[in-house]
Amino acid sequence: MSEPNGQPTSASGAKLFKVAFDLEEERPNWPPVSVERLWGEKTTTKLEIRVVNTPFFVRGISFGDLIQVRPDNERRELVFENFTSESGHSTVRIILLQGTEREIVESRLQVAGCSWELANAFGNLLAVDIPSTVEYCELREWLLAQVRAGRIEIQESAISSVHRQQLPSFP
């Protein structure tokens, strides 16, 4: 959704802003980008933003989390400064190793109550938002079974305290 002036807005009508997250290389060629930009909406706290989409590469951030930003006048954009508080959502990335698995994985995620984002440039990568209401332990067991079967790879990028409490032993 967007206003007549082209400024994107959230479902609640709040103006959305892009926030740049500078990424460090974790291993050669990963992540495949040096900056990821996420949408966010301002809160009532100065320079605080609520993230309103699911990151593909940023670690430790999920949909709904609160972050502080700083204006970077040279770059002409808002840049992530630090994490403020979690929303209870978790972020998991799924890499589809077999093209035939997309429907099965998406169906299971939908049944669980998750949403996900796709990027055209990374067709086999799903950025999955797991709301706090989802029973993550059960979903995680299913995902790990798919990993063991060689169908997918996963990266648990940001697991909320709500979901960590559901897991008997979390790394």
Rank of each mutant, 00 (worst) to 15 (best):
T100M: 07
N73V: 12
S85R: 13
G88R: 08
N73P: 12
S90Q: 04
V92Y: 00
V79E: 05
E103Y: 02
V92S: 01
S90A: 09
E101V: 13
R76T: 11
T91S: 11
F83H: 12
L96Q: 06
L96C: 10
I95K: 08
F80N: 01
G99N: 15
E103L: 08
E81L: 13
V105F: 01
G99D: 15
R76F: 13
E86M: 09
E86H: 04
H89L: 01
H89K: 02
V92E: 01
V92L: 05
L78N: 05
E74W: 11
L97Y: 03
N82R: 15
R76N: 15
T91Y: 06
E77F: 03
E81G: 08
T91P: 06
F80C: 01
S87R: 06
N73E: 15
L78C: 02
E77K: 08
E101F: 07
E81V: 03
N73Q: 14
S90Y: 02
L97T: 10
S87C: 10
R76M: 14
E101W: 08
I94F: 03
L97Q: 12
H89W: 14
E81W: 04
H89F: 14
I94N: 00
I94D: 00
L96E: 09
F83M: 12
G88C: 11
T84R: 09
E101C: 06
R102P: 03
R76A: 13
Q98C: 09
N73L: 15
E86S: 11
R93K: 12
L97E: 09
N73S: 14
I95C: 00
L97A: 07
I94M: 03
G88K: 07
L97K: 14
R93H: 09
S90I: 00
E101D: 12
R93W: 04
F83D: 06
I104L: 09
E74S: 13
L97N: 13
F80M: 03
L97W: 03
V79T: 09
T100S: 14
E86F: 00
Q98R: 13
L97H: 11
V92M: 07
G99L: 14
N82A: 07
H89Q: 04
T84L: 10
R75G: 03
L78S: 06
F80E: 00
L96D: 07
I104E: 08
H89C: 12
T100A: 11
F80W: 06
L78V: 05
G88Q: 10
E81N: 14
S87W: 05
V105H: 01
T100R: 10
T84A: 05
T91N: 13
R75L: 15
I104F: 02
Q98W: 06
S85F: 00
F80L: 07
N73W: 13
E103T: 11
T100E: 11
E86C: 03
V79L: 06
V105Q: 03
H89Y: 15
I94G: 00
L96M: 13
E103R: 10
